[in-house]
Each structure stands twice: as structure tokens, then as C-alpha cells.
Design a protein around this nucleic acid. Structure first.
Lengths: 195, 195
DNA sequence: TGTACATCAGTGAACGCGCGTTCACTGATGTAC
DNA sequence: TGTACATCAGTGAACGCGCGTTCACTGATGTAC
């Protein structure tokens, strides 16, 4: 039943109704109510698996990073690429939070949350004298920037810019490189094709 | 009839239907079709006035800035505050763009667009040797950051942080201060209450 | 081995709802001659 | 001054649609004694 994600991938978030899920699953419209109290609960469940997947993607990116200075950039690029590859899922993930005026799951301050992954990565990268307070703010700033880039990077007016920068990833690195906490991005983006 | 914005302010974007607008205007459900081809056209019109209002807000912020180093920060803060004060309108503005996979109006590369306002402000602030290419990328980065912050700053988990930073605006300045292109923010945020 | 009961995932029909949109039509206002 | 016509914003009833949700019910499976 969690293959409600098929609908998201194929038809977008606006098509994600309880009935559509039941239809896609080859089941009567009433069946989902044996698994979810209501539509909101299904959406929450979908968002939950989304955050898990994004968390794994980010963790993989962190482990791929060869040194501390590329860490934040790898994670940032992975974050945005995930959002690009699963745009409808990403939308549901944030919509669920907004409906509650509450942080998305990935940004909760639990141990092992994606947010803490970013925060500790940033702490390792930053000057050792940086205060906890500044680490916190910088992490929020980085998350905002990544989220903004995730929402905006798919506008087609950026296509020519992307071509000149060696494709999607080059573009992301180039944009991130102008944001304080993604320092390693700069060198790599320039290397890939600045001009 | 453009007082469809009342519905946005009072009931949120999901309540913005053609019928609701007609109801709010005290008019039959068919009446709006004399002014708009379909629902999309009405939404576009609403988004348009939204971008105009945001553009004015940003221009006012630019003119309020006392020197070139505070320029970007003033504009950034004004941007996010606008989004916070008109969350539903801001949502419609971006939804209209996304539906077309196209840049929002404010980001178009026309003379006098909000995007050019930001880009020229950044150019004035940056080192004179900076290339056009980098100005372009930095402007996109700044816009992404502001957009991300606009979408995330209202989560209530940030409330305690905001208290320690002298309220909403102090929080915004503090977060922006960690992003490369808002340099003046740092000093001001620190002055307000770095702890 | 058999009986009685509980659980569970499902059915299918129906409910009321708000929606976008279309239709033929009305009544007021403006304009040409 | 009067007549004929065009335009315009509106009416109100209806269309078909997909939706979330509820209902009483079914049939298969598991479990207790």
C-alpha cells in the first residue's frame, strides 16, 4: 500500500488522493481505512518514508566525502538532487510539516536526524572556535539555502546556465559555492567549467 | 474582484476557488468568467499583483539602506518578512510558476524586475573585479536562500531561538549572516543579541 | 479433531460536498444614425 | 429626440466529476478450549 509513491512519481502530488491510492493498489476505495485513520495519516506515512530515504541519501553523501571541506557540499548537492529526482515526494514531505506549522521530520533535533547530520558536518568543517549558537544558525541557513535551491533549480530558464557549468550538478555546486558554508564547492565548480 | 486576496488572507490558498471568490464578491459562480478565461488566469492575476507588491517592498528596502554593505541584507529581510506577512499569497505566487516550470515573475530578467534589483545591489556590494557570471550565480544563490528562509522561518520550533535574537527580524538577520552575500547582517545580528 | 469465536483485509454501495465550467438568458449602459 | 443595435457584467440552474468518508457486510485466517 505504501506504493502510493507510484502515484506521486507518475502523476504528481495533486493526484495523491485516498481513492487514487486504492485504485492504484487495485482495491476498493474503503480499503485504505483499514490501514490509515484518514488521508492525513497516509500522507504522514508517505512523508515519513520520504524523510528516511532522504536521510539515507545524505548519509551516503557524507560517507562519500573524502575530506572535511567537501563534506557540506556533498551533502547539499545530494539533498537537492534527491528533491529533483522525487519532486512530488519532496513536496508532500514539506506540505505535511507546513500543515502542522512544525519542522519537517528531517529537521528534528533527534540524534540520527538528517538535521544533526548536517549540523555535525558543519561543526567539523568550521573553525574550532565557533560557538554552538553559530553552528546552529549556520545549519539552519544551510538547510534554507538547500531547500530554496531544491525548489527553484528546476525552472527551465536556468537551462543555458547549466549547460555552461557541466550539467545539473555543476550548476548546483556553482550556486552553493556562493553561500558561506559550502566552501569546497567553489573550487570544484570552477574546475568543472567556469566561464 | 481582485479582492480574491481577502480569501487568501483569511482562509489560505487551498480555499481559493473560483466559486469562493465569486461568493466572497457576492456574485454568482459564473460571473468571474466574464473577467478571467479560467481559474488559472485568475491565479495568474493574483500572483501578478503579489509580485508587484513584493517588488515594491524590496525597492523600499533598497532605498532605506543607508550604505552599500547593508543593501543586500535589507532587501533579504524585507523579502522574507513579506512572505511571512502574506504566506498564502506568497504560496500562490510560486505555485503559478511551478505549474509552468518557469521562473516566477519577480525573477524574470526584465529591466526593473525584482531579480535585477537584487543583482544590481549585489554587484554594487561585491568586489569590483567580480565577473558577471559570478554576480549572476550569487544572485540566484541569494534568492534561493531567501526563498528557503521564507518557507521555513515560520516553523514554531524556531520560536525560542527568535526570542534570544530579539524577535523575528533578529532571527532573520542572524540566519542570513551565515550566508556569504549578506555580510552586513552579521554585525547587526551580533549587536542585537548574540549569545 | 472439532467447534466457537476473534481478528483482519477486504467489498461495494452510498452519503454529501465543493469544485470548474457551460448554458441561455437578463438588464443596464453606451453609441450610431 | 428617438430608434436600433452592440456591449457588458451579471444571473441561476445545471452538467459531470472526484473527493473523503461511512456503512453493513463477507470470507479467510488464526486461536482457545
Amino acid at each position: 500500500m505504501d506504493a502510493a509513491r507510484r502515484i506521486l512519481e507518475n502523476e504528481g502530488p495533486s493526484a495523491l488522493s485516498l481513492r487514487a491510492v486504492a485504485r492504484e493498489a487495485g482495491v476498493s476505495p474503503a480499503a485504505p481505512y483499514h490501514h490509515f485513520k484518514d488521508k492525513g495519516e497516509l500522507l504522514d506515512a508517505v512523508a515519513h518514508v520520504g524523510w528516511e530515504a532522504l536521510g539515507e541519501t545524505m548519509t551516503a553523501a557524507k560517507e562519500r566525502a573524502t575530506d572535511v571541506s567537501t563534506l557540506m557540499t556533498e551533502i547539499g548537492v545530494a539533498y537537492v538532487l534527491f528533491a529533483q529526482q522525487h519532486p512530488a515526494l519532496y513536496r508532500v514531505m514539506y506540505d505535511c510539516s507546513r500543515d502542522k506549522d512544525s519542522l519537517p521530520e528531517g529537521m528534528e533535533n533527534n540524534e540520527d536526524s538528517a538535521y544533526c547530520l548536517v549540523r555535525e558536518s558543519f561543526r567539523r568543517m568550521a573553525a574550532p572556535a565557533i560557538s554552538d549558537h553559530d553552528v546552529e544558525l549556520a545549519t539552519i541557513a544551510a538547510w534554507c539555502a538547500a531547500h530554496g535551491l531544491a525548489e527553484m533549480s528546476s525552472f527551465r530558464q536556468f537551462d543555458p546556465l547549466k549547460e555552461g557549468l557541466g550539467g545539473e550538478e555543476g550548476f548546483l555546486r556553482a550556486v552553493l559555492s556562493h553561500l558561506g558554508m559550502f566552501p569546497a564547492a567553489r573550487a570544484k565548480a570552477n574546475g568543472d567549467g567556469d566561464g
